[in-house]
Lab assay of single mutants.
Amino acid sequence: TRVETATETAWISLVTALHLVLGLSAVLGLLLLRWQFPAHYRRLRHALW
């Protein structure tokens, strides 16, 4: 049971790290898009909202 718990903890930390990385890359990508294509971003936002 001790090994299982350790594996579970490792998986949880791995998944958390993955989610953090994905979230950060998504935010960075959005910022980059907004910085590179302001007109396109505004049009996209206008279409979405």
Results as ranks from 00 to 15, higher is better:
residue 47 A to L: 06
residue 6 A to I: 07
residue 33 L to V: 08
residue 28 L to Q: 02
residue 6 A to R: 11
residue 30 L to H: 05
residue 24 L to M: 15
residue 39 A to W: 08
residue 49 W to V: 03
residue 6 A to Y: 08
residue 26 A to F: 15
residue 22 L to M: 14
residue 15 V to M: 06
residue 40 H to M: 10
residue 1 T to K: 12
residue 14 L to N: 02
residue 14 L to D: 05
residue 1 T to N: 08
residue 28 L to N: 03
residue 33 L to E: 00
residue 38 P to F: 08
residue 33 L to D: 01
residue 32 L to M: 15
residue 29 G to V: 14
residue 14 L to E: 01
residue 31 L to G: 05
residue 49 W to F: 06
residue 36 Q to E: 08
residue 48 L to V: 09
residue 37 F to I: 07
residue 49 W to Y: 06
residue 20 L to F: 13
residue 16 T to L: 14
residue 35 W to A: 15
residue 1 T to R: 13
residue 4 E to N: 13
residue 27 V to H: 02
residue 23 G to Q: 04
residue 33 L to R: 02
residue 8 E to Q: 06
residue 32 L to D: 04
residue 31 L to Y: 12
residue 23 G to A: 10
residue 1 T to W: 12
residue 8 E to W: 00
residue 23 G to P: 02
residue 28 L to Y: 05
residue 17 A to P: 01
residue 26 A to Q: 00
residue 4 E to M: 15
residue 16 T to V: 12
residue 27 V to K: 03
residue 25 S to E: 01
residue 21 V to N: 00
residue 34 R to V: 06
residue 21 V to M: 12
residue 43 R to Q: 08
residue 18 L to V: 08
residue 18 L to F: 13
residue 36 Q to I: 14
residue 20 L to S: 08
residue 9 T to H: 15
residue 7 T to P: 09
residue 33 L to G: 04
residue 47 A to Y: 08
residue 23 G to C: 14
residue 31 L to N: 02
residue 38 P to A: 15
residue 3 V to K: 01
residue 43 R to S: 08
residue 31 L to S: 10
residue 2 R to H: 10
residue 39 A to G: 15
residue 12 I to V: 11
residue 47 A to R: 12
residue 14 L to K: 00
residue 4 E to K: 09
residue 48 L to M: 13
residue 15 V to R: 03
residue 45 R to N: 00
residue 14 L to S: 02
residue 18 L to K: 04
residue 23 G to Y: 06
residue 9 T to W: 13
residue 25 S to Q: 08
residue 49 W to S: 04
residue 24 L to G: 10
residue 16 T to A: 12
residue 3 V to Q: 01
residue 38 P to L: 09
residue 27 V to S: 08
residue 2 R to L: 12
residue 15 V to Q: 10
residue 10 A to E: 10
residue 7 T to Q: 11
residue 41 Y to V: 14
residue 12 I to N: 06
residue 3 V to M: 07
residue 5 T to K: 00
residue 37 F to E: 03
residue 30 L to Q: 01
residue 39 A to V: 14
